[in-house]
Design a protein around this nucleic acid. Structure first.
Lengths: 337, 337
DNA sequence: CTGAAAGCGCTTACAG
DNA sequence: CTGAAAGCGCTTACAG
């Protein structure tokens, strides 16, 4: 439909081979004068390279496909920014595909759309693949890597936070603030990704190191959603057996916060809250939420880098505590509680 | 690199032509027995069609490229869901490209990435293109359509809400609640998209119809961001010359809400607030925000439909008022204010 | 420095 | 119903 190198060849009198060399800048294979003529013609005719043809003949692609849940993982933006940044530096292109909200067919469609064309590689942002889809991916012979979730399966490479450390650190922080009855809410410990299990383990370890035996009702699992936060708070109930809670995501934290408000439980006066993620959402609610902040941008950047350079190992990105005022320091006077 | 139809031809003894016909399901051109053999072989060998080759030869594509700002336009998710839904129904594929945060180079990169391969068409989600990039798009000879913003330029087709109506309706609503000093905050009236100007015009019209002359300081423009909300509230100031404000986006509304809290102005007791958009963000803040709710899903669905069916006209999607408690009804007693 | 030719993986008239 | 052949837009040894 559009202008092709053949048109430019005709226009300039050069062969398509020469035109191709100029346009794909094979330095050393053409003179400056030729280049000037060809480029001028290309500009004049409004030439746009058909990368599909290039990819077909070169058998490689500069496209990185990013697969992402359509559900609200509000941290995907900084991850994608990181990916874009690295991709730009390496002269790669990024396309994004929505894999639905944990829906088999949508996942499959996204995967197929990606795999049906030449690709540099695939990055999956916290997409918990169904077994068959994972199989599809594994057999596709295209490099891939997960971002923000981790797995036991040694075939599945990832860049993520150290989720054990997240659980451990959050708990230690609350302990240091004088809390001893500490809850964990909204993490998924059923998923094939072991993110939730790791956080739980880190949490348990920190408690045990401090001679605290985690109570059954301190832990309210969930799927990292806003609703999981609401439900968790309902389950803790008015009498709540905890003085502080670690929430599995910012949305869980906000859900919990709002449900607490509905139950006339004030944060941080009656209940402390530290959330995992630390996205902008923490700053737009009242009170702002203290968080274990993940470095999502870095996750994306590193994920792209490892994919591009064909690294085989996993990587962790840094985490930090961002204090914003949803955690109260317990004093001796509180101990009667 | 992968398995090709040539491999299947070799495996089955059929010609590549026949294999191609079976695999692309050209009914009437093959027998059921042949199909069974070919399909079995394809499955066995793990064949995956190379769509780049197909697109090259057929000169058409089933790919819809969606271009989107990386900045937090939190309503893009439902739009994309709508697009996906329609695309699935029409057996099209969707890829998404990030165009940065109003950055010329990023826009250009996204556009080029899209235009450098066969494409069914392009959908742009509230991307305010720089002039040169718009030119690039216009000359590309690929159908395109904007979603959620509208233009005067008759070359630029769109599916959006009726923004004049939004401004008008929001104002009428507040008038009905007894407000007469009504502000408008965080809308962009400089942009090449005339969304902001339309909202302003609708707002002004509603006031004038009620014999109210809009005061200069009732209007605080901005770029629809959280920060624009903070700034707007600072500008209204402690003495605030308005009793109710219409905010240009949910983020503006939340910014304004939080800044008001900081200034000890209580919403809705001291100040009423109605926001434009009505995304989930309205429901996770306290108080929840009353909104003019846009039908983003429908925007996406219709945008894709119009693109696919090559419609030429523009379209508006429906809007509605969602009352959530950030607007107070003024009584006679308030009138002394 | 340049061109003729083969070929990437597919589709589709054309002929049988 | 099937196959041989041409061709989509590009790249790249090979020969000059």
């Amino acid at each position: 439909m559009g202008v092709t190198i053949k048109d430019i060849a005709k226009e300039t009198g050069f062969s398509v081979a020469t035109v191709s060399r100029v346009l794909s800048n094979k330095v050393g294979f053409f003179s400056q004068e030729t280049a000037a003529i060809v480029n001028a013609a290309a500009l004049k005719l409004g030439y746009k390279k058909n990368m599909a043809a290039t990819e077909l003949v070169t058998q490689k692609s500069s496209i990185i496909a990013v697969i992402i849940n359509s559900t609200k993982t509000n941290f995907s933006d900084p991850i994608i920014e990181g990916i874009q940044q690295k991709a730009n530096e390496a002269d790669k292109r990024v396309i994004i595909l929505y894999a639905g909200d944990h829906d088999f067919r949508s996942q499959q469609r996204a995967l197929t759309t990606a795999l049906e064309r030449p690709l540099m590689g695939i990055l999956l942002l916290s997409v918990d693949l169904f077994a068959d889809n994972l199989q599809l991916l594994k057999t596709a012979n295209v490099p891939f890597r997960f971002i923000s979730i981790s797995f036991q399966d040694p075939d599945l490479k990832y860049v993520a936070s150290d989720d054990w450390q997240i659980g451990y650190l959050a708990t230690k922080y609350l302990l240091k603030k004088g809390h001893r009855k500490i809850g964990l809410a909204g993490v998924d410990i059923e998923s094939s990704a072991h993110t939730g299990k790791l956080r739980l383990a880190g949490y348990q370890r920190a408690l045990i190191e401090n001679n605290i035996t985690p109570q059954k009702d301190w832990i309210q699992t969930g799927n990292y959603s806003y609703k999981a936060g609401l439900n968790a708070m309902k389950n803790y109930g008015q009498q709540k057996n905890v003085s502080a809670i670690i929430t599995g995501s910012d949305l869980v934290g906000i859900g919990l916060l709002n449900q607490a408000a509905k139950m006339n439980i004030s944060i941080p006066n009656d209940l402390s809250l530290i959330t995992i993620d630390g996205t902008y959402l923490c700053r737009i609610v009242q009170p702002q939420l203290t968080s274990i902040t993940q470095n999502f941008y870095s996750m994306g950047y590193l994920g792209a880098e490892y994919l591009i350079s064909n690294q085989r190992q996993n990587a962790f990105t840094d985490i930090q505590i961002s204090e914003r005022g949803s955690v109260r320091k317990l004093t001796a006077a509180d101990s009667e509680n």
